[in-house]
Design a protein around this nucleic acid. Structure first.
Lengths: 184, 184
DNA sequence: ACCTGAACACCGTTCAAGT
DNA sequence: ACCTGAACACCGTTCAAGT
């Protein structure tokens, strides 16, 4: 990549973070390019889709969350490990309002630039869930996709002004639903 | 209203239902007006906002759901009454994809044409919740807004292709979270 | 190799002009 | 009283032309 292109790339990322933080994941691409002081076509060559831009913005944080899932496996209580990671995941998907809906769409669209990242997140959670099913009290019919779905639902709650103040309480309520399996 | 205006009004509603069923609650207003064979300005005079159009489309079903909440109060088990109505409510908010997000926004916007209808839905659910808290095992710190929030979250799940097939299972899981209060 | 402005086909909103 | 076409300021996408 030529050095002017590299500068543009970085500058677009910084500006995009600022704009999307303020306006949400469906912010105007034109607006981002204007505020980055770059031609609109330049933005689209670096990031051919909105998903590609979001993926670049989220990549490092997604990897961090995946690593965290691994490290949480060392927590004594499998139940507590699962719920603690769920809390972290819900905080993460709320970085940008509307991001979680885009991530959910990416899961069922293999051509999305966000698809692989979301798959990784799902499989990271799956390991914690399976441990809590084997050695804890997690619902035994639940899948990694279900866990992702609940992260999504809680993220959506946090995006709604009317519900955001109660999202922590509702996370704990849903956690009780997850952990309600009876020992045999 | 002049008779030609009345005809337009009805015809717009029928067409809007068809278009929004297919494309979701964020379908193009221009597209609706074109398919209704009516000037775009005519659509906007009858329904000054998208919310007003949605409200007109949902009104009768919303009233039906409110009545159903009343009749469910006669069900013996307060827990079962609450969860049965929750199931009905989740089915209802899924009539149009994206409708539930619009309803959530309407709750915290008193100027929205949908605001009153959503308030009514919330208070209908609140009565069933309070009965299940007093005589059943519903979470005692839960509010009517929380119940609406969970309906919204489950509706959102149903709007996502990746999660829709599991939304019934996840409803029952969340229902367990709601009913997990221990008798004292 | 990289960037840009302009064109294209859309969108919601508004309003002067028609019947 | 009611309707309409056109204008306005947007949007994402594409592409010929510039350096």
């Amino acid at each position: 990549m030529r050095s002017d292109a590299k500068e543009n790339y970085q500058h677009i990322l910084v500006t995009a973070h600022a704009v999307i933080s303020e306006q949400g994941a469906d912010a105007s691409m034109r607006d981002i390019s204007r505020k980055a002081g770059v031609g609109l076509a330049t933005l689209f060559r670096h990031f051919p889709t909105r998903e590609a831009l979001l993926e670049a913005l989220l990549r490092s944080k997604l990897e961090e969350l995946t690593r965290k899932a691994d490290s949480f496996e060392t927590i004594d209580s499998p139940n507590e490990a699962l719920v603690s990671w769920l809390r972290e995941a819900v905080i993460f998907v709320r970085v940008y309002s509307g991001a979680v809906t885009m991530m959910a769409a990416a899961l069922s669209d293999p051509t999305s630039a966000l698809h692989a990242s979301c798959e990784n997140l799902r499989s990271a959670g799956t390991r914690l869930l399976q441990r809590a099913q084997a050695k804890g009290s997690a619902e035994k019919y639940m899948t990694g996709s279900d866990l992702f779905a609940l992260i999504g639902a809680l993220g959506w709650l946090g995006d709604q002004d009317a519900f955001a103040p109660r999202s922590d309480y509702l996370l704990e309520l849903i956690a009780r639903g997850i952990l309600s399996s009876q020992p045999e």
